[in-house]
């Protein structure tokens, strides 16, 4: 019987690692695994060989939705207008501490 190339396909997974308590999960890269358990184990083997992680998230790549770079104008510029969100917008006397 002809081997069906589809039958051996494993999904691609994106890997996110939290290196230490207090940090966010950071994107580390991608790898192939047949299921989620394998993906986490592979992520441990590939991306934390040098003790770089204490928490691993894996997501099938096709479940990640990304914004379009050409949209970034409309997505992000409005936020750039709202400078009052930034602490440096406010002028306060030097004597004021702890704020």
């Amino acid at each position: 019987m002809e081997p069906n190339p589809q039958s051996e396909k494993w999904p691609l997974w994106e890997v996110f690692i939290r290196a230490r308590q207090g940090l966010d999960h950071k994107h580390a890269g991608s790898l192939y695994a047949a299921d989620a358990r394998m993906a986490i184990e592979n992520a441990r083997d590939v991306y934390t060989r040098r003790n770089e992680g204490i928490s691993i998230w894996v997501v099938e790549s096709n479940h990640i939705h990304a914004s379009n770079p050409s949209e970034s104008d409309s997505l992000y510029d409005p936020a750039n207008d709202k400078v009052y969100r930034h602490p440096s917008f406010y002028h306060l006397p030097d004597e004021l501490k702890n704020i």
């Binding site: 039958s7 051996e8 299921d35």
Partner: peptide, 15 residues
């Protein structure tokens, strides 16, 4: 390795 990859894919689908 093909039969190994197929087995893992098949098992995953079953699950």
């Amino acid at each position: 390795g093909r039969w190994v990859r197929e087995a893992a894919a098949a098992h995953s689908m079953k699950k």
